[in-house]
Design a protein around this nucleic acid. Structure first.
Lengths: 251, 251
DNA sequence: CAGTGGTCTAGACCACCGC
DNA sequence: CGGTGGTCTAGACCACTGG
């Protein structure tokens, strides 16, 4: 297995590390090696790439540190389920977010529709003209109270399977997390005043400050989805811890 | 130089990597090796730690990737000026933030005082009772308009030199950046409604939504400063890009 | 042009853990 | 017990670059 043409194209002056790294990474984000897949052992990879084991080890160590794979002694190395973003900004799974507060999570689909991409849609997803998107509005609640309003558009060209889903029982974020093997994301955080509909759905007064997190998610260069999450400002804060050095096994 | 007692205490079962890494990192964040300092060459470090050059190389490579040092061929490796946090969330230097918008930066000290740490101060900096803090309120402007209101407390036990500064011409953030060799930080982002004084200073109507970024900065286990930055919500957004794998030389 | 970091090798030993 | 990843070695060659 894992035989490779090592002169794959634009890898002309890259180091051996980077060539192998890009190769393996490509297989993971493309879904060729889906989450849970066991990747070949170091010895086999070394043989396949025609290099020493240490070189492969360096690559796998880096992949493990960046969260793409998990390494288990005796068992091998496995592609991880994408959760590393959550470690940075824990807004990936709202249900988990609510559960962490010790509250009961609730979900309700407010609106669902398919439409030709508007100018705003195209800007958000960097779509060419003529694309179609799925438009979703959902409400997440924590205990008896609204927790977060989600407005989402999904690029149907990138995820055509989404059209068959009705999202009445499952939040689109969770569903997408399953569908898309891996992705990168851009975030924007703002403070806004609640407009009429937002205020009504969130059960707050219009004009109250809300924290808005916008995220768009890309896979292999194309944007898959854009989501706007609106939290009542007085009930929510984002937290993050940064250290110059990346996380390491603490002393 | 660089002679070390390699059995420094709680490094009993750590790998050789981690021992060396922790040691060098400690010298940097403690200020023993200040920004700009050239650290010993790989060969010398290997000799000092009694290991092979590759082991040292692994450590230095990791330090470089995490942003603590910069490596230059032929010159050696140098302790970097702390800017890696800015790469993650670019709110470290407000002057640069304003300049990036193409606007003229302005700074004004609104209030300055020294006080026994209040209960709120102690909570924010995790201070023991009886500590004293410097309390500062400053206004940053972009062009003719207020840009950001800064309210800051500085732990005088950690940075006694701050008491001699009046901060009338230089923002405390910039000054601290020079004083403190390295640090880690915790951020909290919220949306709030402007109260009376905030609104007046920011030249907005009371009740308008504002984006609030709180940051506290730690050095070697002790908190140095806590700052609350309040931005008019309609004029400011935080942006961040996350990728599962850490940044690498792109293809 | 000499010394630096960047990279790679061909081994080696070890701890651990699933078979 | 055997195979896995984790770690380390004692070299080596190269590209680059600053003195």
């Amino acid at each position: 297995m894992t035989e490779r043409d090592e002169t794959a194209g634009d890898e002309r002056d890259a180091s051996l590390h980077q060539t192998i790294l890009a190769d393996i990474e490509g297989r993971i984000i493309s879904g060729a090696w889906p989450p849970g897949h066991r990747i070949p052992f170091e010895v086999d990879l070394a043989a396949a790439y025609g290099c020493s084991r240490m070189t492969v080890n360096k690559v796998l160590t880096q992949l493990a540190k960046s969260g793409l794979i998990e390494r288990r002694k005796r068992s091998g190395s496995f592609v991880r389920t994408p959760t590393s973003q959550a470690a940075v900004m824990e807004i990936r799974d709202i249900a988990a977010e609510v559960a962490a507060l010790g509250l009961a999570y609730g979900y309700r689909l407010v609106r669902r529709g398919r439409r030709k991409a508007t100018a705003a849609d195209r800007a958000r997803l960097e779509l060419p003209a003529g694309g179609t998107v799925l438009h979703l509005v959902c409400l997440h609640s924590a205990g008896p109270e609204p927790f977060c309003l989600e407005e989402r558009i999904v690029n149907l060209a990138a995820v055509p399977e989404a059209e068959a889903e009705d999202f009445s029982a499952e939040a689109p974020g969770v569903w997408l997390l399953r569908q898309v093997p891996w992705s990168s994301a851009e975030h924007v955080v703002r403070a806004v005043e609640a407009d009429g509909e937002t205020a009504e759905l969130l059960a707050i007064r219009p004009g109250r400050a809300c924290l808005v997190v916008e995220r768009r998610t890309a896979l292999a260069g194309a944007f898959v989805t854009h989501v706007t999450l609106t939290y009542p400002g007085h009930r929510h804060a984002l937290q993050a811890r940064f250290t110059p050095a990346q996380a390491r096994a603490p002393t």
